[in-house]
């Protein structure tokens, strides 16, 4: 499968390889700080999707699909399960559907860690956004190839 135009550029290629892990890390950072500060699942997801799209531009469709390992729609599925599932813990403790639940974990070195259903929801959004954006990008890239 050779592209019609040779768009490969050494600079972009190397840059993408270096940037990809950084961007993914940055997207996770955005995701986790999102509860109290600017950031969140949506923006984090966009950054992560952009990282993989960059891989697609630098190399090709196949390379991008390989890093993702799964079909992007499956990511959407996992994201939706998490986001919808985040509504359920409240029911188990007898509160209104979708009420936020908070758990505090005491860890030996880091001090206390606060976990919550909004965090689960946000991770769901994160995965959902990556999946949706990449589905669109891959669909267009696939059409270009064939």
């Amino acid at each position: 499968m050779t592209p019609r135009f040779n768009m490969r550029s050494l600079i972009l290629n190397t840059g993408a390889t270096l940037l990809l892990p950084l961007l993914i890390l940055f997207s996770l950072f955005l995701l986790l700080r999102g509860h109290d500060e600017p950031g969140g699942g949506f923006i984090g997801g966009l950054v992560a999707a952009a990282a993989i799209a960059l891989k697609l531009f630098a190399e090709d469709y196949r390379a991008a699909r390989t890093i993702l390992r799964v079909h992007p729609l499956q990511l959407v599925g996992v994201g939706l399960v998490l986001a919808a599932g985040a509504s359920l813990p409240a029911i188990l403790v007898g509160e209104n559907f979708f009420t936020a639940q908070w758990w505090t974990l005491d860890l030996p070195i880091f001090g206390s860690l606060k976990l919550s259903t909004p965090l689960i929801f946000d991770i769901g959004v994160y995965l959902g956004v990556i999946g949706t954006v990449l589905t669109v990008v891959f669909t267009l890239a696939e059409a270009e190839h064939s």
Binding site: V76, G77, L80, V81
Partner: peptide
């Protein structure tokens, strides 16, 4: 929503 999500997975 849940059934749709699981069947997407």
């Amino acid at each position: 929503l849940l059934f749709g999500a699981v069947s997407l997975v």
